[in-house]
């Protein structure tokens, strides 16, 4: 068995070395692939807070991803067309500044997560899965019919948004930005797991009755986890839209909700770096298997099946054994 921190370290090194190599070898496409992996990892890290620690099987996380994407798209659209964004009582100017876009994406997806969570957490089990799925689909169909912002066709943002001091159009710089954000969120996540909230939430997943018996409300803990989870996935959505310079209702699709859940399960549910490993493996498979056959997802399906059947802890569980209690 390998120590989990060694796997984590190898992942971090890989995410630094491979793009550096690609930069030296002038392979910008590899950098774009790595950026995609990092952003998907961030989305899955978000889901992992709800799914892995809180035990909330949400099949509606595409809602937050899409909200992040559309926040970016709408703000950038108004900036590039020099039209104000009308919010009823008042109107604001669009913006191309990433920090502002990120903040808006985080706040709005957290708010929506609070509403969806408050309604969905009245249920549990398969009903929770279904109701989160339904909320996700609601956003999907809303986006499809939202003509002002491209409707079903989505909309293009011609120039990537800006970050002070960086040229975000240079692939390696945008990659580095995303990697730093992922690192920051992982660090916060690691703190959270060991914090008061982390202990209480983890117990609320394992034995809600025990948590009530010591005087805490498991539902409020889970709702808070859902909000944090949605905020992180929303941030990832804003980055993803910036990577592609394109937003479309596909970001809201339930297939995407499923995809990030696959990333989490593939890597290792509840493990800090599980979603990161899952995303890296997923993007690699997509690229290499996808180059061999159009039906690469069949092979992904088989791999996933094997993981679920024989390695409940995902790839990290396979490599490192059962969860170390102090990790």
């Amino acid at each position: 068995m390998i120590a989990e921190r060694h796997v984590n370290l190898a992942l971090v090194l890989g995410l630094i070395v491979v793009p550096s190599w690609a930069l030296a070898a002038d392979e910008p496409f590899t950098i774009t692939l790595a950026t995609r992996a990092v952003i998907l990892a961030l989305a899955a890290v978000g889901l992992n807070i709800a799914l892995g620690i809180g035990g909330l099987v949400s099949l509606g996380h595409a809602a937050f991803f899409g909200i992040g994407g559309y926040v970016m798209g709408i703000l950038a659209y108004h900036a590039q067309t020099f039209t104000p964004l009308d919010l009823g009582a008042f109107s604001i100017a669009g913006t191309k500044a990433m920090p502002v876009i990120w903040l808006a994406a985080i706040v709005l997806s957290a708010f929506v997560a609070a509403v969806i969570g408050a309604l969905s957490l009245r249920t549990s089990g398969v009903y929770f899965i279904m109701i989160t799925l339904a909320f996700g689909q609601m956003f999907y169909y809303f986006a499809v019919s939202w003509r002002s912002y491209g409707g079903a066709d989505g909309m293009s943002i011609y120039v990537r948004n800006s970050f002070p001091g960086l040229d975000t159009l240079v692939p390696i710089q945008f990659f580095a930005l995303c990697l730093v954000l992922l690192g920051l969120v992982l660090y916060l996540n690691a703190r959270l797991v060991r914090s008061r909230f982390g202990l209480a939430l983890d117990a609320a997943r394992q034995v809600p009755l025990r948590v009530r018996t010591v005087g805490l409300d498991p539902l409020r803990l889970k709702l808070a986890a859902f909000v944090l989870s949605g905020a992180v996935t929303g941030l990832a959505g804003a980055l993803y839209a910036d990577l592609n310079r394109f937003v479309s209702p596909a970001m809201f699709s339930w297939q995407f909700s499923g995809e990030i859940m696959v990333l989490v399960i593939l890597g290792g549910t509840g493990r800090l770096f599980g979603p990161v490993l899952g995303a890296v493996v997923f993007v690699a498979l997509e690229h290499f298997l996808g180059g061999l056959t159009d039906f690469w997802q069949i092979y992904l399906g088989i791999i996933l099946l094997l993981i679920v059947l024989f390695a409940r802890g995902g790839i990290i569980g396979l490599l490192c054994g059962k969860r170390g209690l102090h990790d």
Binding site: L188, R191, L192, S195, R196, F197, G198, L199, A200, V211, T213, V214, G215, L216, L221, A224
Partner: peptide, 12 residues
């Protein structure tokens, strides 16, 4: 932690 009534710590 339950007795303290303050589970909302995310950092320490």
């Amino acid at each position: 932690l339950g007795a303290s009534g303050r589970p909302w710590g995310f950092w320490r």
